[in-house]
Amino acid sequence: MVEMIGSPDVLASENMEPGCKASLGTPARLSPRPATILGAIDTNVCRQRRYSSSRKIESNKLSQRLGGGKLVIVEGNIGVGKTTLTQKLADDLKYKVFLEPSTDNPFLEKFYADPHKYALKLQLWILRQRYLTYVSALQHIISTGQGVILDRSVYSDCVFASVCHREGFISSDGYQTYQYWRDQSLQHLPLPHVTVFLDARPQLCHDRIHTRARECESGVSLDYLEKLHQEYVKFINEMKSDGSQVLTYDWSTFKDEAIVCEDIRAANRVEWTESDLPTSDLPSLEFPLAEE
């Protein structure tokens, strides 16, 4: 387990949930991009990729391949209860669960030593792991027809990058770089069929964090949780606008997962077309993460 102690561990501790471990994957090789391709900074990075309002109907062949399964992501603030619910939903729905992978993060120690230098590398590394996890989930539902459910996703990674930028750990130039690579990631992926959002006041999430007493979350401040909540509200509105079926629950008290299961089963499935799906030559996306 990778322990995260002291400031500025708010970024790292969130990105290591659950179990306070880093995500699985091999560090990508350096692939520098000219600054001219990035353009002006967009402070609302989650808007970078949008779907057309006129969606094609899924072909019969594609619908047959997917069966009755859906790709579901579970989102919400730190401490709200995502992982517990995700595992229960997977059991009840007979879906395959994809939690954030666990392995040592090659940039964590460097981030602690020099956060302004390594925050971007850390964030890009985690973005890539979330991308790879989403691809694995997508490949599973396409190849087997079994539904999949993810505890957080590549789509919501922008929530944490935005707060990290607001906190000053990622520069404006670095934030442009993040925007570019996030856009490169999402252009190859279809939207999740269903986005489950667990909503609770930041103060309550803060209380839950201290109740479960994970050492790696000891530095998560109420102020940080409030900023994440603000960004999450924007993100959820954008997922609705883009066409994912958003199911929002007041998670101030833990609900019966059976209610959520029924809502997922009844939810309209956002239409995927063959052109939305990744091909066998899906790029590995060699983010600029070379250690210095």
Score class of each variant (00 low, 15 high):
Tyr178Glu: 00
Val270Thr: 14
Ile264Thr: 02
Asp256Trp: 01
Val233Glu: 15
Phe107Tyr: 15
Glu238Phe: 12
Ser172Gly: 02
Arg208Ala: 07
Gln230Lys: 10
Thr253Val: 07
Thr195Val: 13
Gly67Ala: 08
Asn44Tyr: 07
Gly145Tyr: 05
Phe169Trp: 14
Asp151Gln: 09
Phe169Thr: 04
Phe287Gly: 06
Leu132Phe: 07
Pro192Lys: 02
Tyr118Lys: 10
Ser143Gln: 07
Lys82Gln: 09
Gly219Pro: 04
Glu58Gln: 14
Gly6Arg: 10
Leu247Lys: 09
Gly81Asp: 05
Tyr51Trp: 13
Val246His: 03
Asp92Leu: 09
Tyr178Cys: 01
Val220Asp: 02
Arg212Pro: 00
Val10Phe: 12
Gln146His: 08
Ser153Thr: 06
Phe98Tyr: 14
Ser156Thr: 10
Asp276Gly: 09
Thr103Met: 04
Val74Gly: 03
Thr195Gln: 01
Gly145Trp: 03
His188Lys: 05
Ile264Tyr: 03
Leu30Glu: 15
Pro278Glu: 07
Pro202Leu: 01
Thr279Ala: 15
Gly68His: 08
Ser143Ile: 01
Ser284Tyr: 10
Ile170Lys: 01
Glu238His: 14
Glu292Phe: 15
Glu292Gln: 13
Val97Met: 06
Glu167Leu: 12
Glu14His: 11
Asp263Val: 09
Pro18Val: 12
Val154Asp: 01
Thr211Tyr: 04
Glu75Ile: 06
Asn105Ala: 03
Arg201Cys: 06
Asp183Met: 04
Asp263Gly: 12
Asn15Thr: 03
Tyr95Gln: 07
Thr86Ala: 13
Ala22Met: 04
Phe254Pro: 00
Ser153Leu: 04
Met1Thr: 12
Ala161Ile: 01
Leu228Pro: 03
Gln245Gly: 02
Arg201Ala: 14
Tyr51His: 12
Gly174Lys: 02
Leu189Tyr: 02
Arg265Leu: 12
Lys88Pro: 04
Trp181Arg: 00
Leu11Ile: 15
Gln179Ile: 05
Gln123Thr: 13
Thr279Pro: 02
Leu191Val: 04
Lys234Trp: 04
Ile259Leu: 15
Val233Tyr: 08
Arg152Val: 01
Tyr95Leu: 05
Phe107His: 15
Leu71Tyr: 02
Glu257Ile: 05
Gln184Glu: 06
Thr26Tyr: 13
Ile149Tyr: 06
Ala113Gly: 07
Pro283Asn: 13
Val163Met: 09
Asp223Ser: 06
Gly69Leu: 03
Gln87Cys: 13
Asp250Ser: 07
Leu66Asn: 08
Glu271Phe: 08
Asp151Ala: 12
Thr86His: 07
Gln139Pro: 01
Leu198Cys: 05
Arg269Thr: 10
Val72Ser: 01
Ser143Gly: 05
Thr144Glu: 10
Leu189Cys: 03
Cys46Met: 11
Cys20Asp: 09
Leu198Asp: 07
Arg166Ser: 10
Ser52Arg: 15
Phe197Gln: 03
Met4Asn: 12
Glu274Tyr: 10
